[in-house]
Nucleic acid binder design. Structure first.
Lengths: 193, 193
DNA sequence: ACCTGAACACCGTTCAAGT
DNA sequence: ACCTGAACACCGTTCAAGT
């Protein structure tokens, strides 16, 4: 499992300047292309980026690799907002607002949606994108220290449970379903065992 | 929205015996084919069923239509098990066990998994497959009448919240994550507002 | 070390022709 | 009323040839 050197450039940054430029061009056009049509073909993206299909494939071996790269870039901003949200609100409210913000990014900001919600993608987010889990852990710690949630909660559990947020339509009928369910979840976090 | 007659045969049963036979042959081979490989092509399924691609397309206009037809057939058994579960256990425990059973069917029983977890599929399950929501409503009513959950819960909310169940791996490390999260959810259902 | 782009096998979908 | 199967445009992926 320790193949850090001479391996697929998809993981780290490319070493040559033309490769780096191509990578950035691909990411840049892919963002817009996915927003227009989540089912856009990889060949089309390659054409839009002005590279051969082989080049796209070299940087992003699978469709999901490409989508996850875009996704991580966007979500990082939400992850970075944790300290700010914690400074402005009491911990439990911060948790609540932060998750709503995360859901907003995941759902609306770009049309990556469909492709992102597969089980595989969810597992990638949960397993390989540690910063999100770390952010959840941070929020839970604050709420726990102020006695607003019970202790011993697993951030990964909470993140998985919150997954309903990106399956709710934003403006559905019957009041705001997302807020309603979020309340139920938070009460589950508060109850002592 | 009221086009019951002269419409696509995908909805109701076909009228001619050869059409019915074809439909059943398709469903029968599709089950096994999806179990072997969730990404199997529709043309391959048509070939396996011994029908032309056009015939498959006539019965199931999209890939999801076919998958949903298989899925509904399987899930119906779980839906029908509600009275039995309620007879054997007290309501809250019945709710718990029933959802675990539903998750087992959705996750393991067949390899339809991947294709089923898209947002579109989830919406189809929530919006168009009323029997599942009705079953949840039944279980909630029982638990409410015995005072084990608070009143006014929306079955659709609860079903959406329980969606984490089919995103959990069955035998993951760290104890049983599904049971742990399920406990949190149930505590959220109990808390009074 | 990285890119190009032709090429391969296959995909979903359509539709004229049959019965 | 329903089925067949050839056909179309396109897909993801590969890989020899370049620089």
């Amino acid at each position: 499992m320790n193949l850090a050197r001479s391996e697929s450039p998809g993981a780290g940054a490319p070493r040559r300047s033309d490769a780096l430029r191509n990578r950035e061009r691909i990411l840049s056009v892919a963002y817009g292309a996915f927003t227009d049509d989540p089912d856009v073909s990889l060949n089309t993206i390659a054409k839009l980026a002005g590279v051969g299909p082989g080049t796209l494939y070299r940087h992003f071996p699978t469709r999901e690799d490409l989508i996850l790269a875009l996704y991580q870039h966007e979500v990082q901003a939400v992850v970075d907002s944790v300290p700010e949200v914690l400074a402005e609100r009491e911990p439990l409210d911060a948790l609540r607002v932060w998750f709503l913000r995360l859901a907003e990014y995941v759902r609306l900001k770009h049309g990556l949606g469909e492709a992102l919600h597969s089980v595989a993608a969810q597992n990638m987010i949960n397993d390989t994108y540690a910063p999100v889990t770390a952010a959840v852990g941070h929020l839970l710690n604050s709420a726990e220290q102020s006695g607003q949630v019970r202790s011993g909660l697993d951030p990964a559990d909470v993140l998985l449970l919150m997954g309903f947020l990106w399956r709710v339509g934003p403006g559905k009928p019957g009041g705001d379903q997302a807020e309603r369910i979020l309340d139920m979840v938070i009460q589950g976090l508060q109850a002592e065992t």
